[in-house]
Simulated assay, not measured.
Amino acid sequence: MSDSNKSYSITDLQVYLAHHYQGDRDEQGFFMKLVEEVGEVAEVLNQRAGRKAQDKADLDAELVTELADIIHYVVAIAAINGLNLSQTIIEKDKKAAIKYQHKRNLEEFLRKSKD
């Protein structure tokens, strides 16, 4: 398995970005980049839906790249602020599972997928 195919967690990414952006607390700058990337996802989705002329050869590749950029900046904002994004995602999903009466939550899914 190549290194690019190995799985990693949000926590891994958060630790890496905390180190990468060590001393850079420009959360407003990161947020502005996040908004920019969301706009780029909207552009790709509009192209895929035919609402905008297509100017990219591979829209799937473009979409996944822009989604990765969004994840990068979301996790970076959490990382530079020392926030535990992974745990918060688990806790928020538990509440949503109860509210929307899901059969299982993310934590249960992860536990069963490791068995």
Rank of each mutant, 00 (worst) to 15 (best):
M1I: 10
S2C: 06
D3L: 10
N5Y: 02
Y8N: 06
S9W: 00
Q14K: 10
Q14T: 08
L17K: 05
L17V: 07
H19G: 05
H20E: 15
H20S: 05
Y21P: 09
Q22W: 00
G23D: 04
R25Q: 10
D26K: 04
D26F: 01
E27K: 02
E27W: 07
Q28P: 01
G29H: 09
F31M: 15
F31I: 13
L34A: 03
L34W: 01
G39M: 04
E40C: 02
V41K: 02
V44P: 07
L45F: 00
Q47L: 01
R48V: 07
R51E: 13
K52N: 07
K56G: 01
D58M: 09
D58F: 01
L59V: 09
D60T: 13
A61G: 13
L63S: 05
T65W: 00
T65F: 00
L67S: 10
A68P: 14
A68Q: 13
I71Y: 03
H72C: 12
Y73T: 10
V74S: 11
A78W: 01
A78H: 05
A79P: 04
A79I: 08
A79V: 09
A79W: 04
G82D: 08
G82L: 03
G82K: 04
L83T: 08
N84T: 02
L85G: 02
S86W: 07
T88C: 07
T88G: 09
T88E: 12
I89A: 08
E91F: 00
E91M: 04
K92D: 05
D93Q: 14
K94G: 05
K94S: 05
K94A: 10
A96F: 04
A97G: 10
A97C: 11
I98L: 14
I98V: 15
K99C: 03
Y100M: 12
Y100L: 15
K103D: 15
R104E: 15
R104A: 11
L106Q: 03
E107D: 15
E107I: 06
E108V: 11
E108F: 00
F109P: 03
F109G: 13
F109D: 15
L110D: 12
R111L: 14
S113A: 12
S113H: 07
S113V: 06
K114Q: 07
D115K: 04
